[in-house]
């Protein structure tokens, strides 16, 4: 177990193993997303209240799932980097941040588009919307902090600390925003209060969620590999690799 983790920490070994894993995740992501999209958009029954507009859920919910999981993975990678000084963990954290911010934006944007037919407005200061917006700011903060340092090592460590501080605060922010919302106005409608979805509606959703996760893993592996090449460009094995190709 420990030997495995130790090996995983070596950029060269990670570069090799991820080359084998990456195509599988791409295939899984493509299959799942195509299947989920076709099933969700064309075959799943329309919602009896929202009609066809509910189909935004097939993008909205997976994006929101990813937005939150990526921040947690980023903080875990930051912790691994800070504790065991594993450089690959920091490279992964660095490449995850923009994807997480993009997913947060996608979930906010698709939520806004969904809000027009269902709520009649682009934006509501709903508890979930607000905490997602704050999450977007947290992502932007981590990305900006990493970019602000000239020394890469300082940037990595600062971003790791901020990601960990952020991940401790996310539940606090989430619960306090929920509390704030319930204080101000009674819940007139929430996204979860619809009657339980029938199977033919949530199954494509589950497929889409799995597809988005595969996409995230595949993209992170790919971008981490690029980052390894960029940061280790003066190592011998990278030079040999480039000369071979």
């Amino acid at each position: 177990m420990w030997a495995f983790i130790h090996k995983l920490g070596s950029p060269k070994w990670f570069y090799g193993i991820s080359a084998k894993l990456e195509p599988w995740f791409w295939v899984a992501a493509a299959l799942l997303i195509v299947a989920g999209t076709v099933w969700g958009l064309a075959f799943a029954p329309a919602d009896y209240q929202q009609g066809n507009s509910f189909r935004i859920i097939y993008v909205h919910v997976p994006a929101a799932f990813l937005a939150q999981s990526i921040f947690v993975s980023m903080a875990v990678a930051g912790l691994v980097f800070m504790v065991w000084k594993i450089k690959v963990a920091d490279m992964a954290a660095a490449v995850m941040a923009p994807l997480g911010a993009a997913m947060t934006f996608v979930s906010l944007f698709s939520g806004a588009v969904w809000g027009v037919p269902t709520w009649g407005t682009w934006w509501m200061w709903d508890a979930r919307l607000t905490s997602m917006l704050i999450l977007l700011f947290l992502y932007l903060g981590v990305i900006a902090l990493r970019g602000a340092f000239t020394s890469r090592d300082s940037a990595s460590r600062a971003a790791s600390v901020l990601a960990m501080v952020g991940v401790i605060n996310i539940p606090i922010i989430k619960y306090s925003v929920d509390w704030w919302y319930t204080l101000h106005q009674p819940a007139s409608f929430t996204m979860t209060s619809r009657p339980a979805m029938p199977t033919e509606m949530w199954l494509p959703l589950l497929i889409m969620v799995l597809g988005f996760y595969s996409f995230f893993i595949a993209l992170t592996l790919m971008r981490t590999r690029n980052e390894i090449l960029r940061r280790e460009s003066n190592k011998r094995w990278v030079r040999e690799l480039v000369q071979e190709a």
Binding site: G141, S176, V177
Partner: peptide, 23 residues
């Protein structure tokens, strides 16, 4: 503390800190 070593940390500081102030 995170921005003290940066030449122009002022705006960055508010970006980092304000989301955490919300609760």
């Amino acid at each position: 503390a995170l921005t003290v070593g940066l030449a122009r940390g002022g705006v960055l500081l508010s970006l980092l800190v304000l989301p955490l102030y919300i609760p």
